[in-house]
């Protein structure tokens, strides 16, 4: 049952993640610079960027309307709400009525809806293409996410993310192979969702997944940059909470939560370091070939499903 302290915990972890998100994206930039053997910006560069953009003028294209103006706030809000529903410091979901795998997937669709719509609304052709590509990526990864989580949920007997994580942490899933394959396919879907190379390139904003950002400036751009960093962190936390819940608190004790926080931070840093290495050692895949890759994800998720069916 949802209690007040759970709600506070959810709020706390959402705000904590919001505060830490530029740090995580700063880490990614630092790793990239190291791998390129250049000096690169400091760890805190993204905080400085956001603070600077906040004081810049907000420019809007002439034909843009409500959707364009509302998008940064809608995006950040949605990702914050999602962050409340995902188990991070604890095994269980802080706000259980959000922490359902289907609800989380569809809340991401809310962010995606407005993100892409703002692309059309800006009236810029690059933004429109970016919006269309963002949605196409959604079409490609959502079924993979759903199937791999569905398999894990079937093994745990619940679609609540915390319940799945608890079952995995306690070893209550009777099909280890299926769990591992499901985790791999989910990790793959998550990786695509992160918008990193080889599927996307955050530096080349004009035509790719970040395309809808083309026309944004000033505080709006700052909010979106922040929301996107938060989204990347939340997406990784999603994977960690379901498939790598080891170390998180099973109750609401102070030291349990503290230990959970440390464990969560370590897992996050390790995963982003690994993602940084992968991202910088591959070349960009042509967008039109992305589906070929995403079929690997579908295949892996289906394999997990088959393993579940035969009980391996």
């Amino acid at each position: 049952m949802l209690t007040f302290s759970h709600l506070i915990l959810g709020l706390f972890q959402a705000l904590l993640l919001l505060a830490a998100a530029p740090l995580v994206s700063g880490l990614s930039r630092m790793i990239r610079a190291k791998l390129h053997t250049r000096h690169g910006p400091g760890l805190l560069q993204d905080y400085r960027d956001i603070a600077k953009l906040m004081t810049r003028q907000d420019l809007t294209p002439p034909d843009s309307g409500f959707a364009f103006r509302a998008m940064p706030a809608v995006m950040l809000t949605t990702v914050l709400v999602i962050a409340m529903g995902i188990p991070m410091l604890t095994r269980f979901t802080p706000v259980a009525p959000i922490g359902d795998l289907i609800t989380i997937i569809y809340l991401f669709a809310l962010a995606r809806f407005f993100f892409s719509l703002s692309g059309i609304d800006s009236g810029s052709s690059f933004s429109g293409i970016g919006g269309s590509r963002e949605l196409t990526m959604g079409v490609l990864v959502e079924p993979v996410m759903l199937l791999s989580l569905f398999v894990a949920a079937l093994l745990a007997g619940s679609t609540n993310l915390g319940a799945i994580g608890t079952a995995i942490a306690d070893g209550h899933v009777h099909s280890a192979t299926a769990t591992i394959v499901a985790a791999l396919s989910f990790a793959y879907a998550i990786y695509i969702e992160l918008g990193k190379l080889p599927y996307d390139m955050a530096e080349a904003e004009q035509e790719l997944q970040e395309g809808p950002l083309t026309e944004y400036s000033g505080p709006s751009l700052a909010l979106i940059k922040w929301a996107m960093a938060l989204k990347q962190t939340v997406v990784v936390a999603w994977f960690v909470g379901v498939f790598l819940p080891f170390g998180s608190a099973s109750g609401m004790t102070f030291f349990g939560l503290l230990f959970g926080l440390v464990a969560f931070a370590i897992k996050l840093v390790l995963i982003f370091a690994a993602v940084g290495v992968v991202e910088n050692s591959v070349a960009r895949v042509r967008f039109r070939l992305t589906p070929q890759h995403s079929w690997v994800g579908v295949g892996a998720a289906s394999l997990a499903f088959v393993f579940y069916l035969v009980g391996l």
Binding site: A67, I105, Y106, A109, R112, F113, S116, L117, G119, I120, D121, G131, S132, L135, T136, G138, V139, E142, P143, M145, L146, L147
Partner: peptide, 16 residues
Amino acid sequence: ALTGALAVMCFVKAYG
């Protein structure tokens, strides 16, 4: 799930 993702695309297009 596939239907849902495609429907989002379709209605972003229609409204947009």
